[in-house]
């Protein structure tokens, strides 16, 4: 069993599969995620393949703010992914809600719903930054495989450490 496990773990790290979910993004970050797959940036040289099924995926790329309707979808996709998994929040909106945090239908950053491992800043995030983020997430998956980092189960999400809670601006429903 040990040999087989080693083989699976090795192939997981050498060829991680990502699933992308657009969670209320303006498309700016989405097209940059897709641009990563194209010949100029070529994510596939790291063995990274974009898949449509969350059950096949190791890394979840989330772009955009979470709103009241899609938070259930995001949670659902996250829960379907097998352990060990990593979540990359892409763009300013995914980190904190960005310029939309005052809108009535916006819950906030991705970390309000699911635990996030890597934050990629930028509006929109550049393909180079996204590739960097995915590679960082892989290090985390590796640490999880070796038992150096805790597995992220579907526990209720808490804001990441060192990231202060964004105050909602005062908008009165008069």
């Amino acid at each position: 069993m040990g040999l087989l496990n080693n083989l699976i773990n090795k192939s997981r790290l050498k060829s991680p599969w990502v699933v992308h979910y657009d969670c209320g993004s303006c498309n700016g970050c989405d097209i940059e995620v897709l641009a990563c797959l194209t010949p100029v940036y070529d994510l596939e040289r790291f063995g990274i393949v974009n898949v449509g099924n969350p059950k096949h995926a190791d890394v979840l790329l989330v772009t955009g703010t979470v709103n009241k309707r899609n938070k259930a979808v995001l949670k659902n996709i996250y829960d379907q992914m097998p352990e060990p998994k990593a979540v990359v929040a892409i763009g300013t909106c995914g980190m904190s809600g960005g310029m939309f945090r005052e809108c009535y239908n916006v819950v906030g950053g991705v970390d309000k719903v699911i635990p996030v491992d890597v934050y990629v800043p930028g509006c929109p995030a550049k393909p180079e930054a996204i590739i960097d983020g995915v590679v960082k997430a892989l290090e985390l998956v590796k640490a999880k495989l070796e038992g150096k980092a805790p597995q992220s189960d579907a526990a209720p999400a808490e804001p990441a450490e060192g990231k202060p809670e964004e105050p909602k601006p005062e908008i009165d429903a008069a």
Partner: peptide, 13 residues
């Protein structure tokens, strides 16, 4: 739901 466009007013901080 609170109808956002009809009832929202802003308050100066």
């Amino acid at each position: 739901m609170i109808a956002p466009f009809a009832t929202f007013t802003t308050v100066q901080k």
